[in-house]
């Protein structure tokens, strides 16, 4: 419990630094467990308020229950929701059969880039965690992106103590990662401790399967699991040695490295 509170304090500190330093700030919300915890932490940081818009990059291939959940929570919590979509690519018939990396780049990376450009955001808050996969382990809390949204992972500015990169040249933006130090178990323990409403796709509803990580319907497969509650999930995670994103097709081979260098979340 003490560890969870330390993680919470650090994330809250980062969120407040972001809010102080970025005039045009937004938070990415995919309705998954991580970005929902992030949203909750924003409410912690700003005492029940969320003083920036939430972005959802809609690929049109999301599981329908996720969209229903999104709209309900946004209404109940009074959120400012901004939905972006790469309509051009969709009109041209983009889908995962054209290649997963190609599809992710078009609908997610480029969808996000279009949104950032249209709205002129200078700071984007994301719920990525260091333990998810290798390239995310290399991230800073405040991570600069150049004019093309690209990430130069080999020459990142230093990050010292509680001092972050909050100044940047015009035309570039900063990705802010308040959840970097959280693990998958921490996320669920926190959901339990705070009683955060989450989407029930993460639970088994009697079919012996559940989602462990949520993405687009065609590229995300449920895992075999009988976890029917948060407690069940935590217990299951304590005993598993299977990677969290093993159900995410984009991670295969060198997928995530290539995607993230070009500005994927």
């Amino acid at each position: 419990m003490q560890h969870l509170r330390q993680l919470e304090d650090q994330s809250v500190y980062i969120l407040r630094e972001a809010y102080k330093h970025f005039d045009n700030l937004a938070m990415l919300w995919s309705m998954g467990k991580d970005s929902t915890v992030l949203l909750w932490l924003a409410r912690k940081a700003f005492f029940g308020h969320v003083p920036f818009p939430l972005l959802h990059v809609d690929t049109s291939f999301k599981i329908p229950a996720m969209i229903e959940y999104r709209d309900r929570v946004a209404r109940e919590w009074g959120l400012q929701l901004v939905v972006g979509q790469n309509k051009e690519a969709l009109a041209a018939g983009m889908n995962s059969s054209m290649g997963r990396v190609t599809c992710c780049t078009a609908l997610k990376t480029n969808g996000l880039k279009q949104l950032i450009e249209q709205k002129g955001y200078t700071g984007i808050i994301l719920g990525v965690r260091a333990d998810e996969e290798g390239t995310r382990a290399k991230e800073r809390y405040f991570s600069p992106r150049d004019k093309h949204g690209d990430w130069d992972f080999r020459d990142q500015p230093p990050e010292l103590w509680d001092q972050f990169k909050t100044t940047f040249p015009p035309g570039t933006h900063i990705r802010i990662h308040p959840l970097l130090d959280w693990t998958e178990i921490n996320i669920w323990e926190y959901i339990k401790a705070e009683n955060i409403p989450f989407i029930d796709l993460y639970l088994d509803k009697g079919e012996g399967t559940r989602y462990r990580s949520l993405g687009c319907a065609p590229c995300t497969t449920p895992i075999q699991s009988t976890a029917k509650s948060v407690d069940d999930i935590i217990n299951e995670l304590r005993h598993t040695t299977t990677a969290e994103r093993s159900g995410r097709a984009q991670d295969e081979g060198r997928g995530m490295e290539l995607l993230r260098k070009d500005g994927y979340m």
């Binding site: 260091a130 333990d131 382990a137 992972f153 080999r154 060198r254």
Partner: peptide, 17 residues
């Protein structure tokens, strides 16, 4: 995690694990 590293044989950045 990075291909470059496997080529150079050194770790490039602070990895959190």
């Amino acid at each position: 995690a990075f291909l470059e590293e496997q080529e150079q044989g050194i770790t490039i950045d602070t990895a959190r694990t």
